[in-house]
Structure formats: structure tokens, C-alpha cells
Amino acid sequence: MDYFLQQLVNGLTLGAIYGLIAIGYTMVYGILGMINFAHGEVYMIGAFLSMICLLVLGAVGITWIPFALAITLVIAMAFAAAYGWTIERIAYRPLRGSFRLAPLISAIGVSIFLQNYVQLAQGARPKPIPPVISGRVTLLDTGGLTVAMSYTQMLIIAITILLLVGFTWLITSTPLGRAQRATEQDQTMAALVGIDVNRTISITFVMGAALAAVAGLMVTLYYGVIDFFLGFLAGVKAFTAAVLGGIGSLPGAVLGGLLIGLIEAFWSGYFSIEYKDVAVFSILVLVLIFRPTGLLGRPEIEKV
């Protein structure tokens, strides 16, 4: 039981990170109908930005942790947002209206480019960072095993919940959210009623990238070691999460992320840690075969 609870805590933390990345996939898919395979790389860049920022802040002597984290969060989000905006502007917008696969191939190109760019700029070796937040809370102690939750884990889950609430509000009750949903449903009509479609799409990329950067900061804090290849696996897993939850659906992305995180944690805990990725990607295959619309996705209705 203790072991189960411990894996539950670990799985939820991991799932929160996947969920945040998955939102970026699902939003872009919703509005453009394309999978932005460079999104995992934006997350990786977010992690690097966080690491650099934390180290610089440490070097100049800003050591009050909450303050340093807040600054890091803002800077990582802003820079990653700029990356997201630029990627859309350079690699996707010129291909809009081209054949369906063109932006997808372009996305893969951007992904490889960014990986190599970071590898050259930062080196190929994994970068360790000293733990920023230490300490944990013991949730349960039954003599043998204890169930504990580190402050980092609590922070990750708390920030995720906060962001999700804010984000849901943004989408459901602000003019921006309305414009986004309208653009998602019918771009031509949205343009006809006076929405700047290009701007709305740019903002979507910016928001997705900012959330990915938050995930990047979290992973830096959680694992304490990052490398240039980090975005690939996490990106594909978050994509799996988005598909599992129903691509195009925001709550689905979060639910999918949590489920993938839990599956990974429990599989590692009870079966075999080497095969955890196999388990996750088997889910992708099973979902695509048996429930292509995902858990919360709406079936695609062919417009006549």
C-alpha cells in the first residue's frame, strides 16, 4: 500500500509535466490540424533556459528560492514563447495552404535543427544542476516504507493546477479564448467576422510554448539533470498523452498526461523499469486502433 501511494505521488508529478506539454500539442492541433513535432524541443529549450537562468541568478547572489524561481519561470516562459512564435512564423505559416504533410515534415526539420543547435551551443553531455529545493513531507510512515512527497513535487503539482485553472478561464471566458475557439472551428468565417486569424494562431503557439517552458523548469527541478535529447522522448510521450485524452481537447490533454504519468510510474514500480517506454507507447498503439478519438475527443464529423 505504501509503495502504491509512493508511486501514485511520483506518477502524478510526472503526469503533470506531460500534461503541460500535451496542452501545446492539442491546442495547435485544434487550430491548425497539424502535429507540431517541434514542441518537445521547445520544452527542452525551456529546461535549458531555466537551468541557465537559475545558475546566473545563483552567480549574482540571488539566493532567495521563491524569488529566483519566479524570475526563472517568467524568463523561461518569455524566451520559449519567442521560440514558439518564431517557429510558427518561419516554418509553418509559409506552408499553410500547402499539402497536408508539408508542415509536418517542416516540424520534424525544426525539431532536428533545434536539437542540434542546443547540442552545439550547450554540449552533448548531460548538465547537472544542484538541487534547488530540498526537503520533503512524510505523508505516511508505517515503520518499514514511508510515503513522502518532496517540496519539488508539491510545487510541480501546485503550479500545474494553478496554470490549468488560469488557462481554462482564458479559453472559456475571455475574448482571446473566444477568438481561438472560433478560429479553431472555421478559419474563413472567423476572418469574415473580423478576427485576425494569423495573430490568433501566433498567440496559440506562444501559449503552448510558454506552458512547455514551465514543464521544462519543472523537469529541471525534479530530475536535476538535463540534456539536449530530453525533448524527444518527453515530446512523444506528451503527444501520446494528447492522443489518449483526445487530440484537440484541453481537459483531455491533462487527463491523458496524468494517465501516462501514472502508467509509467506504476509500470516502473511493479513490472520493469526498462520497459516503461514500451508500456507507454503500447498505449498509443492501442488507443489509435480501438479509440482513435481518445477519451474525451469528439468524433470528427465530415462536413458536407
Partner: peptide
């Protein structure tokens, strides 16, 4: 409301 986006 979405039709008034630009004005807003």
C-alpha cells in the same frame, strides 16, 4: 460576441 472581436 466573437463577431465584435475586432471592435473589442
Amino acid at each position: 460576441l466573437v463577431a465584435q472581436h475586432h471592435a473589442l
